[in-house]
Amino acid sequence: MTTLQAYAAQSSVSYGEISEERFAEIVRGDAPTQSEKVSVCQGLTEMHAASINQNSANELAAELGMTRAALEARCQELCGVAMGAHAFPAELPVPPVWLGDT
């Protein structure tokens, strides 16, 4: 699976399927419909931009023929936040200490 396919798959989770071709067109600059925008933003913001073993944002930018800076700027333009802003945190906070029934 390519990085583009992975982002398009994440974009299709909650708000309807979007093809990798359409995802790429929108990220490269095509105007999305409102439902497409929500889907694309789900993929761009819920996927980690970087993880321990790969830099997904760099890989996606390369597959799209864009620079990382242009990809980040397009994410800000479409979604109003940085890539990976809504991804599951890599490090979870320490749970509170249970003090019992005191």
Rank of each mutant, 00 (worst) to 15 (best):
M1H: 06
M1T: 05
T2I: 07
T2Y: 07
T3Y: 02
T3E: 04
T3R: 02
L4V: 01
L4D: 04
Q5E: 05
Y7N: 06
Y7A: 11
A9S: 06
A9H: 00
Q10H: 01
S11L: 06
S12N: 01
S12A: 11
S12Y: 03
V13I: 13
V13N: 06
S14N: 14
Y15A: 14
I18E: 07
I18D: 03
I18Y: 03
S19A: 08
R22N: 06
R22E: 05
A24K: 01
A24L: 06
A24M: 03
A24Y: 01
I26E: 03
I26S: 09
I26W: 04
V27Y: 14
D30P: 00
P32V: 11
T33W: 07
S35K: 15
E36Y: 05
K37R: 15
S39N: 08
S39E: 05
S39Q: 13
V40C: 10
C41Q: 05
C41S: 12
Q42S: 11
Q42Y: 05
G43C: 04
L44D: 06
T45N: 15
T45E: 07
M47W: 00
M47A: 03
H48T: 08
H48K: 13
H48E: 13
A50R: 00
A50S: 09
S51C: 09
S51I: 00
I52A: 10
N53K: 07
N53F: 06
N53T: 05
Q54S: 14
Q54V: 04
Q54L: 08
Q54P: 09
N55H: 11
A57K: 02
N58I: 10
N58H: 10
E59D: 13
E59V: 01
L60T: 04
L60H: 04
A61D: 03
A62E: 14
A62C: 13
E63Y: 09
E63V: 04
E63I: 04
L64R: 00
G65Q: 11
G65W: 03
G65C: 10
M66Y: 00
M66R: 04
T67S: 15
R68N: 09
A69Q: 15
A69Y: 07
A70I: 10
L71N: 02
L71C: 08
L71I: 03
L71W: 00
L71A: 02
E72M: 02
A73T: 05
E77L: 10
L78F: 10
C79A: 06
C79Q: 11
G80D: 06
G80T: 04
G80E: 11
V81A: 11
V81W: 07
V81L: 13
A82M: 12
G84K: 00
G84L: 01
G84W: 06
A85H: 09
H86N: 15
H86S: 14
F88G: 05
F88L: 12
P89S: 12
P89A: 15
A90S: 09
A90Y: 01
A90E: 13
E91T: 08
P93Y: 11
V94G: 01
V94Q: 14
P96M: 14
V97D: 13
V97T: 12
V97Y: 10
V97A: 12
W98I: 00
W98A: 11
L99A: 15
G100F: 02
G100E: 13
T102F: 10
T102A: 15
